[in-house]
């Protein structure tokens, strides 16, 4: 690829009917860019869990995909309640998901942990009552 690729997707809080739409679109873009299988898998997991956290907890947010020759970069920024205790939120199994959210199969408390596992670089920052920002970088193998 000679040119970097960039696109931003907006995600609406509480809209579970469209959950996964941004992730599916991002995966299609990466497939067209012939990103290899394992990188595709890691990116799909990281983007999906990010998208679902915006929908589950925030009012709205943006996911920006940036692809260059060496890396997949995903920036996730939302406006919402933010996270009071990030270390706690990162722990597998910790969840504040409501009953409504759990009934749909979310709320295992695995999302952030899985994003981190799939990332070569993962940074999370959050301001209570303002919002949360994730910076995710996944290296493209063999490049």
């Amino acid at each position: 690829m000679n040119r970097a690729y960039e696109k931003t997707f907006s995600v609406e809080g509480d809209n579970f009917d469209n959950a996964g739409t941004a992730s599916i679109e991002i995966k299609k873009i990466l497939k067209d860019l012939r990103i290899d299988e394992d990188v595709l898998r890691k990116t799909a997991i990281a983007v999906y869990e990010s998208e679902l956290n915006i929908i589950s907890y925030a009012r709205s947010g943006n996911i920006t995909l940036y692809v260059d020759d060496d890396t997949i970069n995903i920036d996730v920024e939302d406006e919402g309640p933010g996270i009071e205790d990030i270390d706690l939120a990162m722990q597998p199994g910790y969840s504040t998901a409501t009953e409504h959210i759990r009934q749909m199969g979310f709320g295992a408390g695995m999302g952030l942990y899985n994003i981190k596992s799939c990332s070569d670089l993962f940074e999370i920052s959050s301001t209570p009552n303002v919002g949360t920002h994730l910076k995710i970088i996944i290296k493209r193998n063999g490049r």
Partner: peptide, 10 residues
């Protein structure tokens, strides 16, 4: 729920 489809697709 329809959310299972995005998971299966991804």
């Amino acid at each position: 729920h329809q959310n299972i489809i995005a998971v299966a697709s991804l």
